[in-house]
Amino acid sequence: MRQFELSAPETVDDALASPGAFLAGGTTLVDLMKLDVMTPHRVLDINALPLRGIDTQDGLRIGALERMSDVAAHPGIYPVISRALLQSASQQLRNMASIGGNLLQRTRCSYFRDVAMPCNKREPGSGCSAITGANRMHAVLGTSDACVATHASDLAVALIALDAQVRLVGSDGTRTVALADFYRLPGATPEVENDLRPGELVAEVVVPRLDWAAHSTYVKVRDRQSYEFALCSAAVALDVRDGRVVDARVAVGGVASVPWRLRTVEAALRGSPATQASFEAAAEAAAEGARPLSDNAFKVSLMKRTVVRALLELTEGSRA
């Protein structure tokens, strides 16, 4: 870890006035500083800022500095969100990690984390080691020739499914951006991961009210039962009446460069019977456009199966 200057602004204005890396829970930043992947000269501890609070009056409003564990335990949270949070990281990390930081966490691509290796995301133009390297954990959707890393957040997958927005504050004022527009595909500039402008801060997550999202879940498939990132995950919410799907939200994680909404699957589900057969038929579209790598072709099939499993668990109840 390189030497850095640490300050702790107490107001948002003070935080925005001085450039530096924002430190909330530290579970990404400190980790990457220890690996020499991030080498900020100035670190701003923003934990004293008033970006707190969970409001469930009309949809959800979650302050960016709320801790993952507190949000997961809050009674008014949609199941898909709390389940995504509870299957993230470990209890110790969830106690520290903030909601804003979770959405901004960097990829777990092992080449990004190893400064001895080329990585376009860490060092633009140096090349992508994963395309020809160990890429079992990597993305099959939304990738480019410059980067095949996945986005690691479970929460973001659930939020994308619920049409969530982020409220951003900067020296030019406040703006609200749909999370789906906030994340950027890697394209030729994988170092640009989101719409955040220099000095801008995530202040709040806003989830529009969706009453039938009470009927939602998050299924995460991984190489061990806890404390591991997703090979594939699915966030689903279903509005089922009289055995038919009236409306559906489906998003997947662990398989794409950004949290990935499956609108074609949603469209196929709408109006169809809530049966295994129609779920399987709808899930066929999940991997449209997938570009598997040498070690992760199985994600195409796993993605469809994960979506089917999540839909079935929601309609048949948990059978674990």
Partner: peptide
């Protein structure tokens, strides 16, 4: 869970406890 992965260039692909998996209590 456990298994070292060696890349063609000899680099250990999963040489840390984030990617070299061992069981957790839940397993």
């Amino acid at each position: 869970h456990e298994g070292l992965e060696t890349e063609a260039n000899g680099r250990t692909a999963n040489g840390d406890l984030a990617s070299y998996l061992v069981p957790v209590n839940a397993d």
